[in-house]
Each structure stands twice: as structure tokens, then as C-alpha cells.
């Protein structure tokens, strides 16, 4: 039987929060998806976590409507869009290359810190790119999602997450501060 070309549908959508927190001792950044937001500092073993940001986000899975193949994204944090902050960052170099081809680069993040050492599955990011391309007019432009491990120095990255930050702020939204 011929291999399925896959037609992806988004399924099992749930709305929740991307929580970014920093340990005040070791300065490590941790980020993950949670159903509820939380704003309180807390201790966990050696770590003392303070919330850096709570962003409204959603989680989902993808399912092929032809063959039923199911890809879970329960360990996916979100998409970051490159702001060209570092000339020699591999993401920026690829971004310039793909731009000539009308392809638009995003960076897919798994939970942190895990995904900075073990990149998010390239196969799953490819499926996600395919999902977004299948539903767009690709004669105009395409989308390509790269793994966050390609970012040269995360601590210097000034990329922006496509997350809902500051929805609850009572001040009109100003320039957002970088998350890293």
C-alpha cells in the first residue's frame, strides 16, 4: 500500500498557560504548559522558583484524517518568532536563506530546560509545519519550524513568543520585556 500523504487536523485542543519561572539560586529558567496560572513563588528541593511570566496559550495534538496517525504535542511550549537579534545565530542565518524562498521561519520550543539540551523532535516539528502549510495558500508563502536547540545563545535571544502575555495587565500594553 502506498504511504499516506497525511492530511492533518488539530485535535484535543485545551486552553491553559505557558509558565516561565526562574530559580533565584541557580538562575536556571524553567518553562512548561500548565492548566492553571500561578503567581506564587515556591520551593522545590534546592530550587526556589519565582514566576517570570504567565502567558495564555493552548495545547493540541495533530491527527491524520486519512490514516489516523496521531502525534501528541503535550510537551510543546510554543512558537517563537525570530527578531534577527544576533547576526551569527544559526536561526538568523537560516531565516535569511529561507526568506528568499518566501518561507517564513519560526522556532518551536519544547519545555525548558530539557529542550535546550535535547531538541524537540524534528519529525514532530516537520508535521507541525506541514499542518500549517496544508491550511494556507502556499503559492504566497510557506512556514518552516526549526527546533529551539538551533538558537545560539538562549540567554541573549530577543525573539518573541507568539503567546498572550499581559492580557490581564491593567495598563495598556507597552513593549514587552524579553523572556530570557
Amino acid at each position: 500500500m502506498a504511504e499516506c500523504a497525511h492530511t492533518w487536523n488539530m485535535t484535543n485542543r485545551q486552553f491553559g498557560f505557558a509558565v516561565f519561572e526562574r530559580c533565584s539560586h541557580c538562575r536556571i529558567i524553567r518553562a512548561y504548559y500548565a492548566e492553571q496560572d500561578s503567581w506564587d513563588d515556591y520551593k522545590e528541593g534546592e530550587h526556589h522558583w519565582s514566576i517570570v511570566e504567565n502567558a495564555q496559550t493552548f495545547r493540541f495534538d495533530l491527527e491524520c484524517e486519512e490514516c489516523g496517525m496521531y502525534v501528541s504535542y503535550d510537551d510543546f511550549l510554543g512558537l517563537l518568532y525570530c527578531t534577527s537579534c544576533l547576526d551569527d545565530c544559526p536561526v538568523e542565518i537560516l531565516r535569511k536563506k529561507y526568506e528568499e524562498d518566501n518561507t517564513w521561519i519560526l522556532v518551536g520550543f519544547g519545555f525548558l530546560p530539557e529542550s535546550s539540551a535535547n531538541p524537540y523532535s524534528a519529525e514532530k516539528l516537520e508535521v507541525l509545519s506541514e499542518y500549517f502549510n496544508q491550511r494556507r495558500d502556499t503559492s504566497r508563502s510557506r512556514v518552516k519550524i526549526l527546533p529551539n536547540s538551533l538558537i545560539d545563545k538562549l540567554s541573549l535571544c530577543r525573539g518573541d513568543f507568539i503567546h498572550d502575555v499581559g492580557m490581564l495587565s491593567l495598563e495598556p500594553p507597552e513593549e514587552r520585556k524579553p523572556l530570557f
Binding site: F15, D37, Q56, M167, L168, S169, L170, E171, P172, P173
Partner: peptide
Amino acid sequence: DLMSDVLAFGKSDSILLTGLAS
């Protein structure tokens, strides 16, 4: 869905439609 906007809407006897479930 943007709370800073909600606060700026100054009419009494109003109802808010929102997708921000917090």
C-alpha cells in the same frame, strides 16, 4: 479579551463578552 481595554470602557449597565477565562 484585553483587560486594559475593558477597564477603559466606562459605561454603566454593561456586560462583557470575553474569551479570557481567568
